[in-house]
């Protein structure tokens, strides 16, 4: 998945924005109070608002004010959902969804229109005009238009604001699938988080145009992502070997590869709930991966406990323990057991 990195500044009377961060997850949420610069950041990324600094997406430079590079919005191929939705009032829902139909047809592996219509539940009002829609319908249409534009990056300003909780979660889960399946990173602004925040893998917090401390993720020290209940281990790793394995230190890990042929960087993802933690002697196990580790700490929440373990290569992983499972002690040696199907390798 292409990585988005930015360091942008913008000065207007009464407000100055100066933010730098790297989106290393597939869904990154921008948070912060009203007027903290979230929407402004998104607009600068979309190319519709001027700013100085630099923006890089994958191996292309969108903005570099030192070198006088400013790629216009129509060449950035972002799917942008503005907070005010900005549906084209003279076009039906279908007309809005198809506005960027040409670009969609040019990009391989774009989300399918029928899929978008089905998952965003737009089918019942495709021939209506925006003025005939409810708030939630308008929001889903605008989101659908961004998804249907053949985007390489999605910039979504408050995508769940007008949706009820249950629908918001369904839409968030769909976005997570789209992002994974089509390798489209998502940067979204979320003002009032609800349950859909379980899908955010990285959270960047702004306040008054500046990044809040500890919001800057350090790619060298990547911690498990996901959320408290369903964390996902995500690790940078080297390219897979010819037989589809990767090496983490001395350990060989069998993986399911979902890499582009010309991928340059690789991420390994394993959901904490897909790993079995085995203490003591190993029985005969029919799983591809059995990795030695040491328990470093246990965290318990109402919904269950997680064990944090350290592997021989120094990386920290998290493993979900069953609600009624035996809880290991810190420092106990253990093995992590998981199938290759659970270890998914992404490359970009």
């Amino acid at each position: 998945m292409s990585q988005l990195s930015l360091s942008v500044q913008r000065e207007v009377p009464g407000f100055s924005l100066d933010v730098s961060f790297v989106c290393c997850a597939s869904i990154t949420a921008l948070r912060g109070p009203v007027g903290s610069g979230k929407s402004t950041t998104l607009k600068i990324l979309a190319g519709i608002l001027g700013g100085t600094g630099s923006i890089r997406f994958g191996d292309t430079t969108w903005l570099d004010s030192d070198q006088d590079i400013h790629v216009p919005p129509q060449e950035r191929a972002v799917g942008y959902l503005p907070q005010e939705l900005s549906l084209f009032p003279h076009l039906s829902v279908m007309g809005n969804l198809n506005f960027a139909g040409v670009r969609r047809s040019q990009r391989e592996d774009s989300p399918e229109l029928t899929d978008i219509v089905q998952h965003l539940e737009l089918g019942a009002f495709l021939d209506r005009l925006p003025s005939e829609l409810s708030g939630g319908q308008r929001q889903r249409t605008a989101l659908g238009r961004a998804l249907a534009s053949g985007p390489s990056l999605l910039l979504l300003d408050e995508p769940f604001a007008a949706l009820d909780e249950a629908l918001g979660v369904r839409v968030a889960s769909y976005l997570a699938r789209v992002s994974d399946r089509h390798r489209i990173p998502i940067l979204l602004v979320s003002h009032q988080p609800g349950d859909e925040q379980n899908y955010y893998q990285q959270i960047v917090t702004l306040d008054n145009g500046r990044l809040m401390p500890d919001a800057i993720p350090d790619p060298a020290d990547r911690q498990p992502v996901g959320d408290d209940q369903n964390p996902v281990n995500e690790l940078s790793c080297a390219a897979p070997t010819e037989d589809g394995c990767i090496q983490l230190g001395d350990t060989t890990i069998y993986v399911t590869s979902r890499c582009d042929a010309d991928a340059m960087s690789f991420d390994l993802r394993i959901a904490a709930s897909d790993i079995l933690l085995v203490l003591g002697g190993l029985p005969r196990i029919m799983a591809e991966n059995v990795v030695p580790a040491t328990v470093t700490s246990i965290s318990s929440t109402e919904s269950g406990a997680h064990a944090w373990v350290k592997l021989a290569d120094g990386t920290t992983w998290v493993v979900t323990l069953g609600a009624r499972a035996h809880v290991p002690e810190s420092g106990e040696p253990c093995h992590l057991v998981f199938k290759a199907a659970a270890a998914v390798l992404y490359g970009s």
Partner: peptide, 26 residues
């Protein structure tokens, strides 16, 4: 609304295309 033209540009339209597809019809 100038925001409509901006969105058209993020959707791949050049300023000229956005004029004929958004500003002019409206």
């Amino acid at each position: 609304d100038p925001g409509l033209v901006q969105v058209a540009e993020t959707l791949g339209d050049s300023p000229r295309q956005a004029f004929w597809r958004v500003t002019f019809p409206l």
